[in-house]
Amino acid sequence: TTIEWNGTKITVDNPQKAKELAKKIAKKLGLTVKVHGNTITIE
């Protein structure tokens, strides 16, 4: 699972952990999480 935001890509083996990490990042930055299959985008 890949997390993408602002040109940065982070690959996380565990999809559940990836989703939790994305939510934490999005919350800190005041952004939203969008899931597209194996890609999680923070916008």
Results as ranks from 00 to 15, higher is better:
2 T>R: 05
3 I>G: 09
4 E>N: 08
4 E>L: 05
4 E>S: 06
5 W>A: 08
5 W>P: 07
5 W>V: 15
5 W>N: 08
6 N>S: 06
6 N>L: 13
7 G>K: 04
8 T>Q: 13
8 T>Y: 12
8 T>V: 15
9 K>W: 11
10 I>G: 01
10 I>Q: 01
11 T>I: 15
11 T>F: 15
11 T>G: 02
11 T>Y: 15
11 T>C: 15
11 T>E: 07
12 V>Q: 02
12 V>I: 13
12 V>M: 12
13 D>Q: 14
14 N>Y: 04
14 N>A: 03
15 P>F: 15
16 Q>D: 11
16 Q>N: 09
16 Q>V: 11
17 K>P: 01
17 K>C: 15
17 K>Y: 12
18 A>G: 03
18 A>R: 01
18 A>Q: 00
18 A>L: 05
18 A>H: 01
19 K>W: 13
19 K>A: 12
19 K>V: 14
21 L>I: 12
21 L>E: 02
21 L>C: 13
22 A>S: 02
22 A>K: 01
22 A>T: 01
23 K>E: 15
23 K>N: 12
23 K>F: 08
24 K>H: 09
24 K>Q: 10
24 K>A: 12
25 I>H: 00
25 I>Y: 02
25 I>R: 00
26 A>E: 07
26 A>N: 05
26 A>L: 05
26 A>Q: 05
27 K>P: 02
27 K>H: 10
28 K>V: 11
28 K>N: 10
28 K>S: 11
29 L>F: 11
30 G>I: 01
30 G>Y: 02
30 G>F: 02
30 G>E: 03
31 L>G: 15
31 L>P: 02
31 L>S: 05
31 L>Q: 05
31 L>Y: 05
31 L>C: 11
32 T>F: 03
32 T>C: 13
32 T>Q: 11
32 T>N: 09
32 T>E: 09
34 K>T: 14
34 K>Q: 10
35 V>G: 02
35 V>N: 03
35 V>W: 06
36 H>V: 14
36 H>N: 14
36 H>T: 11
37 G>T: 03
37 G>R: 03
37 G>Y: 03
37 G>Q: 05
37 G>M: 05
38 N>L: 06
38 N>M: 06
38 N>G: 05
39 T>S: 08
39 T>W: 06
39 T>K: 09
39 T>H: 09
41 T>E: 05
41 T>G: 02
41 T>R: 10
41 T>P: 00
41 T>L: 14
42 I>Q: 00
42 I>H: 00
43 E>M: 14
43 E>R: 08
43 E>N: 08
43 E>L: 13
43 E>T: 13
